[in-house]
């Protein structure tokens, strides 16, 4: 018996935003844990998907059609309904509220929050039938503590928490858990856009004095989707080097 089998077997997992950064680390980690993975992004995961033997899905999860296409392709690639859903796809579009356009707000909501509702809704039926499921949504510490220039982003990430808690209660009787992992600053393309000055300010807020690595977030996700986390639902697991502490 492999380790994966001992822990409840190999599951069918869909990771959105899996081509880079945190999502790529999550897909890698779940694959190493013995799960079959489907990796979704707009640009495709290319070599990573090949290396993991996973389905490489190109779809834009900010639209209804894109979500339908992504989940359908995942079901096909995985050979069945999605048992583990990890919503990692996300963007930032920083700017002060005073100068924000309605379209900026709507884009961010569509990509970061509405996508989470749509993917969750789409996979729920299979999970309800199977009487088992794991949904992990990637939030952000910014959703809890705020950050200037990120009103829309913070709103989407706080929205993910409320959504996940409510859904957790709706589907708890079906052994489906819904949780949030809320990272602090993690070394990815998203944070490489920060200027030196912004980076210094960011670092000063982190108790550990460093940015986290994507695999450190993936470890938290791997726990929440595991059999061991069967009694954990509606919770927020913060992975931020002590940034939000106190």
């Amino acid at each position: 018996m492999t380790q994966a089998e001992q822990r409840g077997g190999s599951r069918r997992a869909l990771v959105t935003g899996a081509s880079r950064g945190i999502g790529a680390a999550v897909a890698t980690r779940l694959s190493h844990a013995g799960h079959r993975v489907a990796l979704s992004s707009r640009g495709g995961a290319g070599e990573l998907a090949e290396k993991l033997g996973g389905a490489d899905i190109r779809a834009d999860v900010s639209t209804a059609d894109g979500v339908e296409a992504a989940v359908s392709a995942a079901e096909e690639g995985l050979g069945g309904s999605v048992e583990i859903l990890v919503n990692c796809a996300g963007i930032t579009n920083d700017g002060l509220l005073a100068r924000m356009q309605d379209e900026d707000w709507e884009d961010l909501l569509a990509t970061n929050l509405t996508s989470v509702m749509r993917t969750s809704r789409r996979v729920l039926r299979g999970m309800m039938k199977a009487r088992w499921g794991r949904i992990v949504n990637v939030g952000s510490v910014v959703g809890a503590i705020g950050n200037p220039g990120q009103t829309a982003y913070a709103a989407t990430k706080a929205g993910i928490v409320g959504f996940s808690k409510a859904l957790a209660k709706e589907v708890a009787s079906r052994k489906i858990t819904v949780n949030v992992v809320a990272p602090g600053y993690i070394e990815t393309d998203m944070t490489s856009a920060l200027s030196e000055a912004q980076r210094a300010v960011a670092l000063s807020q982190v108790a550990m004095g460093r940015f986290g690595e994507p695999h450190e977030v993936a470890g938290a996700v791997a726990y929440l989707v595991s059999e061991e986390a069967s009694y954990v639902s509606g919770s927020v697991l913060t992975v931020d080097g002590g940034m939000g502490a106190g």
């Binding site: 039926r125 309800m128 039938k129 709706e170 589907v171 009787s173």
Partner: peptide
């Protein structure tokens, strides 16, 4: 049957 059961049945 609870409300979720009913939704499942209707689906």
């Amino acid at each position: 049957a609870d409300s979720l059961d009913l939704v499942e049945l209707v689906m």
